[in-house]
Write a protein that binds this DNA or RNA. Structure first.
Lengths: 234, 234
DNA sequence: TCGCTTGTTTGCGCTGTGGCAAATTTCATC
DNA sequence: GATGAAATTTGCCACAGCGCAAACAAGCGA
């Protein structure tokens, strides 16, 4: 399979600045795995035996709280690394990662990170740059949760999703994996009821079209207005 | 000054596994800077010319939103790195860092990171481990904001503060830098009014003692009960 | 010592959201 | 096409916590 995906893989930002020979040497040490929808890629607290690169599909990263709440930390799109506990000096995964659709991933044994990082400094630099972005994102998330109302947070969440995994359709931009009201609620710290009410209202205003596990954003620009908190109260 | 602080510095977790000769070589390239209370260590969006190690004092890291809200990202205690944008492939600081009290920091030029990291792998590993912890903390924060009520969040914030910067007194554990109700509000995503009400209530119950820019936790254990959400409604 | 500034407390009313429950739709399976 | 499970919608109510405003300390400088 390696040969088939090579051109795709070579274009990923993680491998920027890495020669094609080196790339082969890196990818050659990974095994390719298929993960069926709703199956875990890795699980919270579990020993971090591998780290992964998502080649195809979408993965949801979730943390569960002791009292039974679930919070979606982020969604992973093709080309992103996940489970890189080893690069951050951890021995267990900090969260659950679950395939939102059928996925294909590359998996490297965790102990390989150290040698890969020293042999391929660009790989290391690119990885830590991605970590920096993630840290930023997490802080942005904290800020949103601290200062915005539910309506703005949900709007922001949808905008993020279409930017990351949007697919053009004739109706608008579709989030191209199944996503329920409950899922959106877990991303934004609210309830599925409130999300449902919001989506209904937005649908009435022609902002979005949505159905069972399906959201299409018709007017991203107007959604952005809501996200920024400059919405005209109807 | 370097000689005076050497034993202190050698014990920091960032320098774990680094020989004393190497340590000198690393620290020798930093300059020591005093920063007066309320003065910035670095500022959001500003070119990241240096990265820092806090030797003494306490620093507040803040992000400002376009609409004038301020959110406290975290507090930094002695021994922690800050402003390590360069290690994460960024060229500007992502937030404001302000001295909560008079501080002493070591500062290295950002461009030095690359050579330090390659010459001293332990330094690099320790740093990224700290980054990993920070990422964890940020996610924990998101989860708290998503699932907990204000009362629990404030309780958690106080517990974090006393763990990080607590100082034993005869009354209880004092947060040993000036912290206002407003500051706590900015850590927990609420208003100074609500924080004030909570502290008043807790003071009545003998849980804390507080005054102007000052909080002493008298009964950490009972505060933890509140933080966990297992509090008996009075 | 007397202001003056800055931080804190507290009352009151309002509202955004959560909680609950029931009805309804959609999809998958037999 | 019938049956059932899962997702969604919606109405109603309750209340946590915010906003506003006014009164109160507590330091600090002159």
């Amino acid at each position: 399979m390696a040969s088939l995906d090579r051109s795709l893989i070579a274009g990923l930002s993680i491998f920027e600045g890495i020669g094609s020979g080196d790339l082969d040497r890196i990818v050659g040490q990974a095994r390719s795995i298929r993960i069926a929808k709703d199956q875990p890629v890795f699980e919270q607290e579990q020993e971090a035996h591998s780290f992964f690169l998502l080649l195809d599909g979408h993965v949801r990263v979730i943390k569960s709280t002791p009292d039974g709440h679930e919070v979606t930390v982020r969604y992973i799109s093709p080309g992103e690394l996940m489970g890189i506990a080893s690069a951050l000096g951890r021995t267990t995964y900090p969260a659950n990662a679950i395939a939102a659709v059928d996925c294909v991933v590359l998996a490297w044994p965790s102990q390989l990170w150290a040698t890969l990082a020293t042999n391929f400094p660009s790989l290391s630099a690119n990885t830590y740059k991605a970590v920096g972005t993630r840290l930023q994102d997490a802080h942005t998330r904290v800020i949103e949760m601290s200062t915005e109302q539910v309506e703005q947070r949900v709007a922001h969440a949808l905008l993020k999703l279409i930017k990351q995994s949007g697919k053009k359709t004739e109706d608008g931009i579709l989030i191209d994996f199944p996503i329920s009201r409950q899922d959106v609620a877990e991303m934004t710290g609210t309830t599925l009821h409130t999300v449902s009410r919001l989506l209904s209202a937005w649908e009435d205003q022609g902002l979005v079209k949505s159905g069972r596990q399906r959201v299409v954003v018709v007017e991203p620009h107007r959604l952005l207005v809501i996200a920024e908190g400059r919405a005209a109260k109807s």
